[in-house]
Design a protein around this nucleic acid. Structure first.
Lengths: 400, 400
DNA sequence: GCTACTTACGAAGGAGTGCTTCATTAGTAG
DNA sequence: CTACTAATGAAGCACTCCTTCGTAAGTAGC
């Protein structure tokens, strides 16, 4: 809407190329006729466009399907394998990584345990091992990577500085983007982990298709993230979602109800206490149930504030405690119904622990698409299939 | 980004026409060369485009400026006077209306007092009088109106039903859009008044140019509204901004501190009590100051929740009490600084009581532009200058 | 009042893109 | 082997934009 612009004849071709590419991207192999119908172009024009895309390396022809009437149509598909993306979840206890193609199809996943108090070098080494593992598992090389997207705990600036991280002390004040750019010879994106989680849930998880989503990260640490009007909301200073900082929201200390529950035996290690409480509540232990109720009481206050303020379509419960969503959802819904003007859907995360990694991949895919489909400048010029390796064709054409 | 589409050659012309129209719209009279430079088109093509726009009635030629070197250039301007918009603010005590041209330039304003408990018919009659007044003052006729945009208290659906209104009892459950469509032979838009206020502040008021804005409506009744990523946030069920409904946010009863302040003499009528308290606080009355402090204590809780959650660029203080922003802003800032991760700008409304009317006009302008610049279907076809009156040309061309 | 300079206008010719149309080709069905 | 179906590829046409050039309408200087 804001940046629609006319221009040259070549601009029209560009628009049509992008339109065709998008259709191929979303729908898998298509015949020329099918693509023509989807783009609204005539068949001959579609052919022109596709030929150009093939020459540029964005599209390849695949074998025609047999068994239908008439002359078999040639079929084309988006070359999702012209580049690869890596998503990384840097948590306090684990570094997870996944490698995917340009469609976001995951080809390999790894996990490297880390100690929360590990020094910076150890954590960076774990990141490198996690990515190397993905490359080895998928048989790709470092130079095949186009983008590495990273999710981590804390407030992260748009440039990739970690301003603040309660869970990972070594992180604070670090120029994480610079560290990782030294490690990976490709584009590096950094984002808050909860935000990537909500992105994943809205793309392929519990909130698929919803335009306005509130994500609750409930676990040892509490957090939240927002999708507004289909887009990740970062805020002016990239500090959105930090409602847990407000005492009146009663979020910060809420997990204490689960950690310090009298129903937990003394020999249970502190990091398993909350899980124990939730399990006991599921089994009907009245003491544990009371603790869960108190936790939900507190959780519901901040959640209600978000729901009343934003009127989202879906609220997604994620984070470590969401494994016990069956215990948490009914009382949470009940409390929200008391105060909310309009009750949103309240659902548990369907992606679980891989949420952030998937979100990182979706973030990288979206970043790639944004450049590809941007209607300013020459799209895809900074990265086209031809630009690495053969090195001949770029997107821009006819300059000479 | 999402709906960029290629297509026909005529589509390119359409894009270029819209691009030219937008430049003319934003920048006042332009010469052909200037317009060509802005749109990126060549001069001959720009001429073609402008000729077409003139034929369609969107653009007119104005007298050239004298006194410069060379042959004087012809100048063209957007025909903001090809249609008119009315913005209406339906409050509990007043109905305000303003008439503006398609650029949002206000030509006439009126106000009609109403009693809060007035029956439906009286309020509708006041609306009609307010608009008739604007028409008389500006010398326009009802048929010159393209759009009437209305702001009113309460939760309003996308279709213009009032779901709920605490301030205007007669409103509840009313199909306000239908009532007004009966009254005005043009497009009718309904929106919540706080939302229109924040729109006005973000377009021409205290938050001009900001992408993420939190608007606090503080007055006899408390409310809020959000601009997120430059757009009005409605929420899935049009119920966004209702944080005052949450007891823990301490907003709902906050005005009571000002109404029931012991510093107010008994002979002051109840509706003036809050103003009296604020005035006394400005004069240094210690009792009044305490009441104001308590009010701000409560106000800051809900505000901090919004700021922490959204990390806005600007917070705007509007509503009746914002006339005393000099008394309220310093303590509010001080409290927000204690809890917020990143402190936003906190400013007083610069539009005051006309906020909602201006917002309604901005809303109508935006609605008009959205249709005009929409890149789907044939833009402006539903309303083009030619469509009323002469009735010959429409936007679409070359169909036969 | 005349000439030189500056800037804009308008027409002509050329290139690129998309559309329609039609004969041709490569399969399946009987 | 023939009839039918659906995709292919080439030809001709229409539209939009670009570049180039000669012309027109002002101001500045003499």
């Amino acid at each position: 809407m804001t940046n629609l612009r006319g221009g040259d004849l070549s601009r029209l071709r560009q628009l049509n190329s992008l339109s065709a590419l998008r259709e191929l991207r979303g729908a898998g192999p298509l015949t020329l006729s099918a693509l023509a119908e989807r783009t609204g172009l005539s068949r001959p024009s579609t052919k022109d466009v596709v030929d150009e895309l093939i020459e540029l390396g964005w599209v390849v022809e695949v074998a025609p399907t047999a068994g239908s009437m008439g002359r078999p149509a040639r079929r084309y598909r988006f070359r999702a394998d012209s580049g690869y993306l890596v998503g990384i979840d840097i948590g306090a206890h684990n570094v997870r990584a996944a490698l995917a193609d340009l469609d976001g199809e995951v080809l390999a996943e790894t996990r490297q345990p880390v100690l929360p108090e590990a020094p910076l070098a150890d954590r960076l080494a774990a990141i490198e091992r996690a990515v190397d593992g993905c490359l080895a598992l998928s048989g790709k090389r470092m130079t095949d990577l186009w983008t590495v997207a990273v999710g981590t705990n804390g407030v992260v600036t748009r440039e990739g500085h970690v301003v603040f991280s309660a869970a990972i002390p070594a992180w604070r004040g670090l120029d994480l983007a610079a560290e990782l750019r030294r490690m990976f010879p490709c584009e590096v994106l950094i984002e808050n982990d909860s935000r990537l989680a909500v992105l994943a849930e809205s793309k392929r998880g519990a909130a698929r298709g919803a335009g306005d989503v509130v994500f609750l990260h409930i676990g040892r640490r509490m957090g939240s993230a927002l999708i507004i009007d289909g887009k990740l909301h970062r805020g002016y200073g990239a500090a959105a979602g930090e409602i847990a900082m407000l005492p009146e929201a009663r979020w910060f200390d809420a997990p204490e109800h689960l950690h310090a529950c009298p129903a937990v035996p003394a020999d249970v290690p502190p990091e398993d206490a909350a899980g124990h409480t939730l399990a006991a509540a599921r089994d009907g232990d009245p003491v544990a149930l009371t603790c869960v109720e108190r936790f939900v009481d507190d959780l519901a206050v901040g959640t209600a504030a978000m729901v009343l303020l934003l009127d989202p379509e879906v609220v997604v419960l994620g984070g470590g405690f969401s494994r016990s969503a069956d215990v948490l959802l009914p009382p949470l819904r009940e409390r929200l119904e008391r105060v909310c003007m309009r009750m949103p859907e309240v659902r548990a995360s369907t992606l679980g622990e891989e949420c952030v990694v998937f979100g990182a991949i979706e973030y990288a895919v979206a970043h790639h698409d944004r450049h590809l489909f941007a209607d300013d400048g020459d799209p895809g010029a900074q990265r086209s299939p031809g630009s690495s390796g053969h090195g001949s064709p770029t997107w821009t054409r006819g300059t000479g």
